[in-house]
C-alpha cells in the first residue's frame, strides 16, 4: 500500500510515493541514492544508519518513511557544504578514527548529535551528578557513543576525535 510523503534530505526537498513498509534507510539508499547511512544490522543494534532526524540523532532503519512525512534529515554527506569538512569529520581524520570506514558516517552523525546534547546539558548514564552539566570525559564519550559499533575497534581514536570536536565548538 502506497502513501505520499515529503522529505528534506541534506537540504533538498523530495516529494515521493512510498510503500508503507519502506524504512527511511531503504528510501535514502535505494530511492534517493544517498548511501551515506549504512545498512549494518537493520535492527537498531549497530548504529551504522545514524543521521540527524529533525534535529536529533536517530536510527533510520527503525523509522518508517510514512511515519516521518515532512521530516528534515541530515546525513554525514550533508553536514558541511560541498568540498568542506564538518569539525567532527576533520577530527576523525586528524585522529585516524576509523579503519574500514563502514561505520564512520554513523559515528560522525552520532558524535554531532551527542555534542548538541551535551551543549544542552543532557545527562548520560556516565554522569555522576545528575543535577550538574556533563563534561566530555572519556567515560562520557564512550557511554554516549555506545550505540555505534565499530568492528575494526577504532574506539580508542574515536573518543579523542569526539573530544577534539567538542573542544572546537
Amino acid at each position: 500500500m502506497d502513501a505520499d510523503i515529503r522529505l528534506t534530505v541534506d537540504g533538498e526537498l523530495h516529494e515521493l510515493t512510498v510503500d508503507t513498509r519502506t524504512t527511511l534507510l531503504d528510501l535514502l539508499r535505494e530511492r534517493l541514492g544517498n548511501t551515506s547511512p549504512k545498512k549494518g544490522c537493520d535492527h537498531g543494534q549497530c548504529g551504522a544508519c545514524t543521521v540527524i532526524l529533525d534535529g536529533e540523532r536517530a536510527l533510520l532503519c527503525l523509522a518508517l518513511a510514512v511515519a516521518h512525512d515532512g521530516a528534515e534529515i541530515t546525513t554525514a554527506n550533508g553536514l558541511a557544504p560541498e568540498g568542506e569538512l564538518h569539525p567532527v569529520q576533520q577530527a576523525f581524520l586528524d585522529h585516524d578514527a576509523f579503519q574500514c570506514g563502514y561505520c564512520t558516517p554513523g559515528q560522525v552523525c552520532s558524535a554531532v548529535g551527542l555534542l548538541s546534547e551535551v551543549d544542552r546539558g543532557w545527562p548520560s548514564h556516565a554522569t555522576a551528578d545528575l543535577t550538574s552539566d556533563p563534561e566530555l570525559s572519556d567515560a562520557e564519550v564512550s557511554e554516549r557513543m555506545s550505540g555505534n559499533l565499530c568492528r575494526c575497534a577504532a574506539y580508542a581514536t574515536i573518543t579523542p576525535a569526539v573530544q577534539q570536536a567538542g573542544g572546537a565548538r
Binding site: G47, R57, S124, H125, R144
Partner: peptide, 23 residues
C-alpha cells in the same frame, strides 16, 4: 525529573542508546 525523581532519569539513561532514546 533529575532533581525530584533521579531514579527515573537514571533508569531512562540506563536503557538503549542515545539514538534510540531520541526516537
Amino acid at each position: 525529573v533529575r532533581e525530584h525523581y533521579p531514579v527515573l532519569a537514571q533508569a531512562l539513561l540506563a536503557g538503549a542508546n542515545g539514538q534510540l532514546r531520541n526516537l
